[in-house]
Design a protein around this nucleic acid. Structure first.
Lengths: 139, 139
DNA sequence: CCTAAATCTAAAGTTAGGTCTATGTCTATG
DNA sequence: CATAGACATAGACCTAACTTTAGATTTAGG
């Protein structure tokens, strides 16, 4: 299948200018254009965008994604670099998830705290009762 | 305990100017100053900063954190707002974690892919073999 | 065929969240 | 008691990742 920029924008829930910006930054190599200059996204471009979205979600910068895309163009010589990059991304993601889980734990405590405060109609009581061990552990 | 801005910056691994910026933005209400104007962070300021860091990690903007801090100053009238905010934060965090886990799943696939590619010395073989079901599911 | 909607480029503008600079005062130590 | 290091303010600057604008061209449907 082949898509216009508008179709792709809708598909990925991205702004059209974001796609043009990615193209300008070199994230979509070999992007076809028709005779009058309109971009045509083929399966390869789409699958590239899926990877870009994934790397973005993993916290990578556009610049670093560009480096990866360049490696892909360079062929088998860069396979090891690419593997190492994904291994590093995996580590990064795993610790991000751990951090979010610990943040969630603190939020859970706050939910408990304010649930009680709302029930009491005042913060005073819960403030005295919950000099919380979990909170102390976090510091 | 009472701390100088430098000590707090070290404790939280924040830039000194970031703390001044937070102060300017109103995130640290009732911050004491000594006679010559130097900031003094007491237990309350520190515990506020812990909450700020937590809310930041949960993806909240400085502006929204400010709204919360203001609610805290306003007293018991805003308890319900605060509870609702933390409930919303919890939801947000839970879906962030889910999204990161799904991203991790895709990265895992890429690791597998490139591990095989590196072993083969070429991408060609793995590219043909792994027209991956997991990948297809993601799209 | 006509016109609204989609696309193009280049370049300027925006936003969040800091970070840095210049200039001056304060403080702690040998 | 000198002086290096910490702190202060105001305001300029920075970066990433878009987003908007202006002005021109193309495409698609009635």
């Amino acid at each position: 299948m082949r898509y216009t920029i508008g179709e792709v924008a809708k598909k990925f829930n991205l702004n059209i200018s974001t796609l043009r910006y990615y193209d300008k930054e070199g994230l979509i190599p070999n992007l076809e254009k028709n005779e009058s200059g309109n971009r045509i996204f083929d399966e390869e471009a789409i699958s590239g965008l899926i990877t870009i979205e994934c790397l973005k979600k993993s916290g990578m910068s556009i610049k670093d994604i560009k480096t990866f895309i360049d490696w892909c163009q360079e062929g088998n010589e860069t396979l090891k670099d690419r593997l190492e990059m994904f291994l590093a991304r995996r580590e990064a993601l795993q610790s991000q998830i751990k951090e979010l889980e610990s943040t969630l734990n603190y939020i859970d405590y706050k939910v408990e705290y304010y649930t009680k405060a709302v029930a009491d109609g005042t913060e005073k009581i819960v403030k005295e009762q919950m000099s919380n061990p979990r909170l102390l552990k976090m510091q």
